[in-house]
């Protein structure tokens, strides 16, 4: 399988007061197109730092990250913003929906950011709303939705511009078990439908049952990298 993200010997060091704290130690990974994978590990293991670097929100102290053979470290701030806008979707634990806008408008927004006219993408948004099963909630605001519904909106928002990669930071952490399963099921279906790679950062064991690849992180190091074909156990 062709990889869309290549991580090569990435080190990330933070300055904490007068001390240096190494969040990632020479991490090397490949993320394939259409992957459905997770970074798992306890708090402070480097999951979010890794998502940050892949998302072009931060730069590694050393090493390189390539997205489709483009080295992110060589992009300036504006180019990185364009990289995120064109290629990435984000799903957050706390949904981060825009509270004053409706379901439809929240999903529409990334397309407007990309310079599209609403009239040209209206059907696309409606289709996406239908894909996440919220066609009857389209005019509601986030405050009128349940947590599971909010996360569906966030997923639709991340997917609507058809990005190559979705970065999801603890997407089920705020949901009960039933909603978590529904959301994971939905993401797996959308992963197959849209061929976008989903990369989760999580320590939720429920996620493990759904992903086809699990990268274990501990103290900023890769401890295991398990894959599964079909519905078998991770190996």
């Amino acid at each position: 399988m062709n990889s869309i993200v290549s991580i090569e010997k990435v080190v990330k060091v933070y300055r904490v007061g007068s001390e240096d704290f190494t969040a990632l130690h020479e991490i090397s990974l490949e993320i394939e197109a259409g992957a459905f994978m997770s970074f798992v590990g306890p708090s402070g293991s480097g999951k979010t730092t890794l998502l940050n670097l892949i998302g072009g929100l931060d730069q590694p102290t050393s090493g390189s990250i390539f997205f489709k053979n483009v080295k992110l470290g060589e992009l300036n701030r504006t180019a990185l913003a364009e990289y995120r806008r064109k290629n990435l979707g984000f799903v957050f634990q706390t949904y981060n929906l825009l509270p004053v806008y409706s379901v439809y408008e929240n999903i529409l927004f990334p397309l407007l950011l990309d310079g599209n006219k609403e009239s040209a993408v209206r059907q696309l948004v409606m289709d996406m709303v239908a894909s996440v099963g919220l066609s009857d909630q389209i005019k509601k605001r986030p405050s009128q939705l349940s947590g599971g519904q909010c996360q569906r909106v966030a997923i639709a928002r991340a997917l609507v511009k058809k990005p190559a990669l979705i970065l999801a930071d603890e997407p089920t952490a705020n949901l009960d078990a039933e909603n978590s399963y529904q959301i994971l099921e939905l993401m797996r279906e959308l992963n197959k439908q849209f061929k976008a790679a989903f990369v989760f950062s999580t320590h939720d064991e429920k996620v493990t049952k759904y992903v086809t690849r699990e990268v274990g992180l501990e103290d900023g190091r890769v401890c295991w990298d398990k894959r599964r074909n079909g519905f078998g156990s991770l190996e």
């Binding site: 701030r77 364009e82 825009l98 990334p110």
Partner: peptide, 14 residues
């Protein structure tokens, strides 16, 4: 703060 941060993360330039 959250909204503006989200926009930056989604690729809106400063």
């Amino acid at each position: 703060y959250g909204e503006l941060g989200l926009l930056l993360a989604m690729g809106q330039t400063h």
